[in-house]
Design a protein around this nucleic acid. Structure first.
Lengths: 334, 334
DNA sequence: CTGAAAGCGCTAACAA
DNA sequence: TTGTTAGCGCTTTCAG
């Protein structure tokens, strides 16, 4: 392995000067800079990130925290989209991404400990379950964080305008003539609660009564299976809704399955609208009408915020991105 | 930050002894071991991974290389499934995962350089394009690697039995009575070529002629769009096939779209079989018949192999996992 | 069973 | 503009 000492030796300068060149110090003459750069090239020198981190206390690494227990994790398009967007900007700003789990060195540990051991500069948190004590511990630490789909006074946060999304969905259904509008919720999650709130708010604004039988909670991990179960429940209601707003596309897909299994049709018998606009839903029959959230942009923004904090920004930031109604075929006009 | 020096000071032992405790050396008396562990706990000591890596030349980090240009990357269920499986075992063995891109420190660089700078212990490669010079450079290096869907003499490899999958698909179609069987290929990729090979082999075995007009290549990144385009091409053939075997589920989905857009129906007019069994396809109408590959198992195995190499295994390993026909509704009996 | 000393590769005062 | 010195936190001989 070639080190700055090797470069120092062959150029005749000191290691310090060599180091200065690689750190863009101004007080190096153009001539020596050139010479050092040249021989570094010739020798095939590559800096050692660990050594650098040891002295500077900066690792240029960002930890990625996401849901493991559910197994949905990385496989869920929401997560994947956010990470994709996040990676794009963090990479261009010089940071690499590392997965942080509760496992480290093959032993169980907390997220916070894992982060400290690895010396990450900051962490992006994409956890649906915000009651996890290890997550809470992280929140109370002074590690730079950005939280997705979460609210916090101490850490920066970013999320889609879930309430507006819920309202958008209900209003659209109302415009189509629907009055009996049910909701399949995203369980005990921030996004789920906001979407439910949007639903409730819109129903009230429209003067539509909410039948308690028409509000069913799906599971926090937004699986198709959970949507199916919720819809089966809904189909047992004394009065059937004519439309349902599902808090996630997977839930909506599950709901469509349940409807079909029951011998009913979407949208002829029941209209369904989802939330997310994951890629697959436009290929369903009927293609799913849904509320689109821009996961890629969410990831971009999250990275901006986190890097701002990492690089000394004091302000706790928060941002909300607009959502959009995407009309396809799963909702019919009454 | 608490270091082993702090522990040494408060316990009265030397830093060396403290270090030995954390490295499970046998030559420490149970009593001192206990005392050191206790005060470490009290002081809230956490090891510093960078410092450790600097001396040991081991980072307990595995680099993850995957396709970025296509943008499909992490969003593709194949990739996500493999990573999920890979992460599971590598994490339990004490390794963390880091994304490796061609960007480092905000500047362009090669994969190999990025790996060396970060000091990863090994890398898992999931790149469709095996002509990428930076990938080749990595192959020629002595960094431990495991390659997915690739063949190599110098690095360990793992993939599904793509040829058998192709054969399975064609034979199934043949059993259903199909004779005019077309193929939409996965382009210039290892998996794509093997699947094509399986197709050709089966056709020949069955004594079915292969109409050149009936073999169209999709793009290497297996997108829905590329499947749609390929199918449109196929629909212009002088003789229409009664069935098509698509080398990937996304391609199959695109093909289904094209068929529908043309006013034809699946499977009444054309039967379609895919490859992968990504989650969404069972929710399509008709639900897609496909060849399932076990991406999670692929990831598990890949991690086993890579860690074997990292930890000193000399042997270049290679493994092939079986695939399975999943019959649903997109192929009809003639 | 314990510890002293050296060194991993790099950066950061501070002098010169 | 350049170099000396010290040190980041840890591991590893090797000696006691």
């Amino acid at each position: 392995m070639i080190t700055i000492y090797d470069i120092a030796k062959t150029t005749g300068f000191s290691p310090t000067t060599v180091s200065k060149v690689f750190n863009d110090y101004a007080d190096v003459s153009p001539k020596t800079r050139r010479k050092i750069l040249e021989t570094a090239e010739q020798l095939g020198y590559l800096p050692n990130a660990h050594a650098r981190s040891l002295t500077t206390k900066r690792s240029w690494t960002i930890g990625v925290l996401f849901n493991e227990p559910s197994g949905a994790g990385i496989l869920h398009p929401y997560f994947a989209g956010v990470i994709e967007g996040f990676k794009k900007v963090s990479t261009s700003r010089g940071y690499d991404l590392m997965f942080i789990s509760k496992d480290i060195g093959g032993k169980k540990s907390s997220y916070l400990e894992h982060c400290k051991i690895r010396g990450v500069d900051g962490v992006v948190v994409i956890l649906p379950d915000f009651t996890d004590p290890y997550f809470l511990e992280l929140l109370e630490s002074n590690i730079p964080c950005v939280l997705l789909d979460q609210e916090s006074d101490t850490k920066s946060t970013i999320y889609s305008d879930n309430i507006a999304g819920g309202i958008l969905a209900v209003n659209y259904l109302h415009e189509l003539g629907h009055r009996l509008i049910a909701h399949i919720g995203g369980g005990n999650t921030f996004a789920g609660e906001k979407r439910l709130q949007g639903y409730l708010q819109a129903m009230e604004g429209l003067g539509l009564p909410v039948d308690p039988e028409h509000v069913i909670q799906g599971s926090y991990d937004y699986t198709v299976e959970s949507g199916r179960i919720a819809m089966e429940e809904l189909l047992k209601a004394s009065v059937l809704p004519s439309a349902v707003f599902a808090a996630g596309d997977n839930l909506a897909v599950g709901a469509m399955m349940a409807v079909k299994n029951q011998g009913l049709r979407v949208p002829e018998d029941i209209s369904i609208i989802g939330f997310d606009d994951i890629e697959m839903v436009k290929f369903l029959t009927p293609a799913l009408t849904t509320i689109r959230q821009d996961t890629y942009a969410l990831g971009n923004k999250a990275a901006d915020m986190l890097i701002y904090t990492i690089e000394g920004g004091e302000e706790v930031q928060s941002d909300m991105l607009p959502v959009e109604l995407v009309i396809r075929e799963s909702c019919r006009s009454l």
